[in-house]
Amino acid sequence: MIPLVVQPNRPEDERRSDAGFTLLEVLVAVAILAAVVSVVPRSLVSARTSIGHSRAWLEARLVAEEVLAGELRSGRMRPGAFSGVVRGHRWRVVVAPAAVADAPPSNGRVLLEARLNVEISASRVLAVDRLLVGGGQ
């Protein structure tokens, strides 16, 4: 035999309040959801832009290292201005005798100051300063 469960008599208003959410609870949930949905896409776009900028700076840094290594390898480092294009990045280097080099050059070698600029975009430039040993003439 199945026992009968008898529920106490409750007024109908009391049963309805337990049945679902109030309008205020739904509005609060929608407001929170709207705030989260508006913040997340902006964060993703910002992160993606930051990654793109980092990639561009890294490529410019690699171009600068490649140009300086090429000039050092060639052994023709001398005072003057040089420019070119490597992997789509324009570069320009100005080489001058270093201000600290007051001593006369030995064996035709002097301390040179090189300022290398690599163009990242129309408005951004990576500048690298180096001291190098090169020919005085």
Rank of each mutant, 00 (worst) to 15 (best):
M1C: 07
I2R: 09
L4P: 14
L4E: 11
V5M: 13
N9P: 15
R10K: 08
R10C: 06
E12D: 11
E12N: 06
E12V: 14
D13R: 12
E14R: 09
E14S: 03
E14N: 06
R15D: 03
S17Y: 07
D18M: 14
D18R: 15
A19C: 09
F21L: 15
L24S: 15
L24A: 15
E25S: 01
E25I: 08
V26A: 05
V26C: 10
V26G: 03
L27P: 06
A29T: 04
V30D: 11
V30H: 06
V30F: 12
A31Y: 02
I32C: 04
I32G: 13
I32P: 02
L33S: 11
A35I: 12
V37H: 12
V37L: 14
S38T: 09
S38N: 12
V39A: 15
V40K: 08
V40M: 10
V40L: 11
P41R: 04
R42K: 09
L44Y: 07
V45I: 10
V45P: 06
V45T: 10
R48F: 13
R48D: 10
I51Y: 09
I51F: 07
G52D: 13
G52A: 11
H53W: 08
S54H: 01
S54C: 14
S54N: 12
A56T: 07
W57V: 09
L58V: 02
L58T: 13
L58M: 13
L58H: 13
L58W: 04
V63E: 07
A64V: 05
E65F: 14
E66W: 13
E66P: 04
L68N: 00
A69F: 12
G70Q: 02
L72G: 05
L72I: 13
R73L: 12
R76T: 03
R78Q: 01
P79M: 01
S83C: 05
G84F: 01
G84V: 05
G88N: 06
H89G: 04
R90F: 11
W91R: 03
W91N: 03
R92S: 08
V93H: 02
V93I: 07
V94F: 10
V94T: 12
V95A: 01
P97F: 01
A99N: 05
D102Q: 14
A103C: 12
A103P: 11
A103D: 07
P105D: 00
P105E: 04
S106I: 08
V110K: 09
V110T: 10
L111I: 13
L112I: 14
R115Y: 01
N117M: 12
N117D: 10
V118K: 00
V118W: 00
E119F: 00
I120Y: 08
S121D: 06
R124V: 04
V125Y: 03
V125E: 07
V125M: 09
V125K: 04
L126C: 05
L126G: 02
R130D: 05
L131V: 13
L132S: 03
L132F: 01
V133C: 02
G135D: 03
G136W: 02
Q137H: 12
